[in-house]
């Protein structure tokens, strides 16, 4: 069975749009981040819109590559991973949207003792998470909006699956850093934050969370890739606002980092 999977792995192809080395904000240490194409969500504020385009569409860097190629590239900075306690982060897009491709790669990395992180929306079948769980050292897990209706409105999908999966990971003692993208006017209201606090406090004793303030760096991508964005004129949250949110979390026993 292992052998068959192995050969299967050699032939595996996947869709990616970038491999970024010396990534310093996608988990601990010096990391290489694999950006995988495709996402089941359609967040209004998405800063990686290219991940949602098809290969070759609007002159993106999206390309189909073999798992071997990706593994080779991801292993290249091994010495720096080891020195820094870093490793590989799977991002996107939604890495769980290419489960077989992901699994072949992440398992090989684990075989090489490389630290792995998955930067995910959490929107996937539980079986997928179950499958990659043994090879994943860290989940960077987005918690965007607590209210199911609003979640659907802003991201295109319901959040039940997302919240269930998060509980599932916690129940299995997975290591998770929650990422809270702070989008002014969308999820920075008191109600959402309160709900998030109670959800997190029910989940675990000392939840780790990073606030990711909305930034406008994605806007130029929309222009370059000729994609329409409905929130082009959104302003990033002020530093004061970010600190307010942080305080709110803190008074409820949750220490939050800024950025990630």
């Amino acid at each position: 069975m292992v052998l068959i999977l192995y050969f299967h792995g050699l032939k595996m192809k996947g869709n990616i749009f970038d491999i970024k080395r010396f990534a310093l904000h996608d988990g601990p240490g010096i990391r290489t981040t694999l950006f995988m194409t495709g996402c089941p969500l359609d967040c209004l504020w998405c800063h990686n819109p290219e991940s949602r385009l098809k290969t070759g569409e609007n002159s993106t860097k999206n390309r189909i590559v073999s798992s071997e190629y990706v593994i080779d590239e991801l292993k290249k900075d091994l010495v720096f991973f080891e020195e820094s306690g870093g490793g590989v982060t799977f991002s996107g897009g939604e890495p769980l949207a290419q489960p077989d491709f992901l699994k072949v790669i992440i398992r090989e990395l684990k075989n090489n003792s490389i630290h792995t992180a998955i930067d995910t929306t959490g929107y996937a079948d539980k079986s997928v998470i179950n499958d990659i769980f043994p090879y994943t050292d860290l989940f960077l897990y987005d918690l965007k909006v607590m209210d199911p209706e609003k979640h659907k409105k802003f991201t295109g999908v319901d959040n039940k699956q997302i919240l269930d999966n998060l509980k599932f990971i916690f129940n299995r003692n997975g290591i998770v850093r929650i990422r809270f993208p702070l989008i002014p006017g969308y999820n920075d209201d008191k109600e959402n934050i309160s709900e998030m606090i109670s959800f997190l406090n029910n989940l675990t004793d000392h939840p780790q969370i990073d606030i990711l303030p909305y930034h406008r760096l994605g806007i130029s991508k929309y222009k370059k890739l000729k994609i329409d964005s409905s929130i082009e004129f959104l302003s990033p949250p002020s530093d004061d606002r970010i600190q307010e949110v942080r305080e709110m979390l803190k008074t409820n026993g949750i220490e939050a980092g800024i950025g990630g």
């Binding site: 010396f22 310093l24 240490g29 010096i30 010495v79 720096f80």
Partner: peptide, 9 residues
């Protein structure tokens, strides 16, 4: 710290 890691590597 990461520059140190880079040098060490």
């Amino acid at each position: 710290n990461k520059i140190i890691n880079l040098i060490r590597g």
